[in-house]
Design a protein around this nucleic acid. Structure first.
Lengths: 357, 357
DNA sequence: CTTTTGTCTTTTATCTACAATAGACAGTTT
DNA sequence: AAACTGTCTATTGTAGATAAAAGACAAAAG
C-alpha cells in the first residue's frame, strides 16, 4: 500500500475523492425513496401471489440496496451549518470532528456537500465561508433521526397510546413493514427493548406484549423507590466540591424559573425531571442503578408525551416537591432526605397509576 | 388453497412429504460442514487479497446457504428417542408436540427420521416401535446447542477465563469469525448481553469490554443484597399453601443429601444454589427483581465453572449458610430472616471478590 | 516535529434471501 | 363431534452483501 502515493497531482486526487463523496450523497435522494415504495408493495402481497409468479419483478431496481442510512452525516451536517453561521472560516477537519462527535470521513463528506452548495470555498486547510446558510440548506428533521429512534417512537406509540391489549402477539415482519424498515433492525430493537419488561420472547415464535398495566407500574416504582432512596442518601455523602452539587444548583434555579412562569413553561418540566433524577441516580456509582433509570426515563418520557390531562397542575406540584427534595439534599441529613424523597416518589407513583386506568 | 385436496391417493402424498422432510435432514450432514471450512478460509484473508482477486472462488459451493440450524429438531429428536425407549408405540403428533415443546412440523420431521432409521413403523396414527435406540441414533450433543448458547459460552470463556483486560475493544466481525457464525447472531448476542453491564456500545463503532472487575462485583452484589433482602421478607408473607414452601422443603432435603456426601457431591451445589436463590427472588413478584437474578446467575454460573479452587470448602460453607437461611424463612420472623440472609450474602460477596484478584 | 490532509482499509448498520420452525385449515379417522 | 393427519402458509433465525462511518497511515504543510 502507498506505492503510488507520490505520482499525480494532489489537487486532482483531491477532486476525485470529492466527486466520490458527492455521488454518494446524491443518489440517496433520487434513488432510495421510490425503491422503498416498491418494496412495500411487494412485501404486502401474500405468499400465494408471490409463489404463482404473477408479478413482474423486472421494474424492481437492481443493485443499490440501502445498507445504512446516512443519518449521522445529515445530522452532523445540520449542526455544522449552525457552526458555519458563526464564523468566517471553519477549523481543521480533526477539530470539526471532535466538535461534532463524528469521524473525519463524515466531516469530509460534510465539507464536500458544503462546497457543492457554494456555502464554503474549500482547498486543503482553507475553508472560507461564502454565504450564510438558508433554511433550504438544512436536511429535513425527520431524515436526521436514526432508525432506532424511529422504531422506538413508532413502537411506543403503539403500546402506550394505541389500544394494545396485554397478551397481544408482536410480529417482527408486520412491525417492520409498518415502520418501513428491514426485520433486522426491528428485531434488534425488540431485543434491546425487552429489558424494559414490557415484552417477552417465545423462542422460535412471536413476542408477547405484557402491556403497560398497573402491575407494571407498581413493579417499576417499587424498584425505583429502593434505588432512588439509596442514591439520595449517597448523594449527601458526595464530596462538597463534587460537580454534582453545582449541577444541583443549576437544576434548582431552573425549577424556580419555570415555576415563576408556570402557565407558559410547564411543558419544560419533563426534561428537567429526567435531568434531576438522573443526577441523583448517578451518585449511587452503581451501573445497575444508573442503567435502571433508562427504564424509568423512557416510561415517563412517553407517558408525559401522550398524557397531557392536568399537566399544568401535576407539573407544578412535582416542581414544588422537587424543591423540597433538593433542599433536603442540601442539608445532607439522611432523615430529611429520606422523608422528602419518599414524599415525592409516592406522588409520582400515584400520578403514573392514575393515568393507566 | 386446498383445491386439489380430494384427488390422488392419500398414501402417496404422505410419502411425498416424508421424502421432502428426509431430504432436508440429509444434506445438513454432508453439505454444510465442508462449506463452513471454506467460508472460514476465505473470511480470514485480508481485504487486499480479496480485492486483488487472487483467489479462485469457483470451488465455493453455490446455493444452499445455512439459514437456520436445525438444533430444535436435533434436540427434540434426542429427547424423543428417550420417550421411545419406554413404550411400544408413540402417541399422537399433537401430544408428542406438547410433551417435547415443539410444533407438529418438527414432530413430523422427527417421526420421518425415526422411520428412516427403522426405529418405528409409521402409518398415520400407528407409530409402532421396531427396535430400541442405540447410542449411534442420537445426534451428538454439540449439535443440539442453539447458536446463542454456543456464542454465550465462547464469549464468557474469553472474558472470565481468558486474560481480557478492561477497556479492550470487541470486534463483531472477529468474534463471529472465531466462533464460526455470522455477524448477525453475534451482534444480537452482544445486544442481549449488554444488559449485564460488562460491555458497552459506542454507536457506529466498537463495543468496549468493561471487564469482570471488583467494581463490577461490588455493584452487582449491592443490588443483589437489596433485592434479596426484600424478596426474603416477602417470602415469609407467602400463603402457607403456596407451592414455594413445598419447593423450599425439597431444596432443604437436597442440601442435607449433598452435605452428607460432600466429598463426592460438592459439584452439585452450583445448580442447587441457583434454584434456591431464584425461588427466593421469585417471591418478590417483581419482574425487575426476578430478571435481575439472570445477571447473578450467569456470573456465578461461569464463575463456579472456571474457578474450582477450594470449591469443596466453599460449597460446604455455603450449604450450611443456606440451611440456616432456610430455617429462618420457616420461622417467618423478619428479623431472623434478615440476619440469616445478610450473613449468607456477605460471605457470597467475599467469595466472589476473592476470586477476582 | 506537530498537526493536517489525502488515501485506503476495516468495521458497523442494515437490507435481502432462505432454511427451520411454527401454525392454520381442511379433510380423515375414531 | 372430537381428535388427528395431510397440506400449505407465515414467521423466525441466520447468513451474506453492501453503503455509511470509523479509523489507520503516509505524505504534506505549517
Amino acid at each position: 500500500m502507498g506505492i503510488m502515493h507520490s505520482t499525480g497531482s494532489q489537487q486532482k486526487r483531491n477532486d476525485r475523492i470529492k466527486n466520490k463523496i458527492r455521488d454518494r450523497n446524491n443518489h440517496e435522494t433520487s434513488d432510495i425513496k421510490p425503491r422503498q415504495g416498491q418494496t412495500d408493495r411487494i412485501e404486502h402481497l401474500t405468499y400465494r401471489t408471490r409463489i404463482l409468479g404473477s408479478i413482474d419483478r423486472n421494474p424492481y431496481p437492481v443493485g443499490k440496496i440501502m445498507a445504512k442510512q446516512n443519518t449521522v452525516f445529515k445530522d452532523a451536517f445540520n449542526r455544522c451549518l449552525k457552526l458555519l453561521a458563526e464564523t468566517s472560516a471553519l477549523p481543521s477537519e480533526p477539530e470539526l470532528g471532535a466538535t461534532l462527535g463524528v469521524s473525519r470521513t463524515t466531516i469530509r463528506a460534510i465539507l464536500t456537500r458544503m462546497e457543492e452548495l457554494q456555502l464554503i470555498a474549500w482547498d486543503k486547510r482553507a475553508k472560507v465561508v461564502l454565504r450564510q446558510p438558508k433554511a433550504d440548506d438544512y436536511y429535513p428533521a425527520e431524515e436526521t433521526d436514526s432508525l432506532a429512534e424511529i422504531i422506538e417512537r413508532s413502537f411506543m406509540r403503539r403500546i402506550l397510546a394505541g389500544g394494545a391489549e396485554p397478551g397481544m402477539q408482536i410480529n417482527e415482519l408486520e412491525l417492520a413493514r409498518d415502520i418501513g424498515t428491514g426485520t433486522t433492525s426491528v428485531r434488534e430493537f425488540l431485543i434491546r427493548f425487552s429489558r424494559f419488561g414490557l415484552i417477552e420472547k417465545r423462542p422460535n415464535s412471536h413476542w408477547i406484549l405484557k402491556g403497560f398495566t398497573s402491575e407494571f407500574a407498581l413493579e417499576l416504582t417499587e424498584v425505583r423507590e429502593m434505588f432512588e432512596l439509596r442514591s439520595a442518601v449517597s448523594f449527601a455523602a458526595l464530596d462538597p466540591d463534587h460537580p454534582a452539587w453545582l449541577e444541583l444548583e443549576r437544576i434548582e434555579t431552573m425549577h424556580h424559573e419555570i415555576l415563576a412562569d408556570i402557565d407558559n413553561r410547564y411543558g419544560e418540566f419533563s426534561e428537567l425531571d429526567e435531568r434531576f433524577h438522573l443526577l441523583v441516580h448517578k451518585s449511587s456509582s452503581n451501573r445497575f442503578i444508573v442503567d435502571f433509570y433508562d427504564i424509568i426515563a423512557i416510561v415517563f418520557h412517553y407517558h408525559y408525551q401522550w398524557n397531557k390531562a392536568n399537566a399544568r397542575e401535576r407539573n407544578a406540584r412535582a416542581l414544588e416537591e422537587h424543591l423540597a427534595y433538593i433542599a433536603a439534599l442540601k442539608t445532607r441529613d439522611p432523615a430529611q432526605i429520606e422523608s422528602a424523597c419518599r414524599r415525592h416518589l409516592k406522588s409520582a407513583r400515584e400520578t403514573l397509576l392514575q393515568s393507566i386506568q
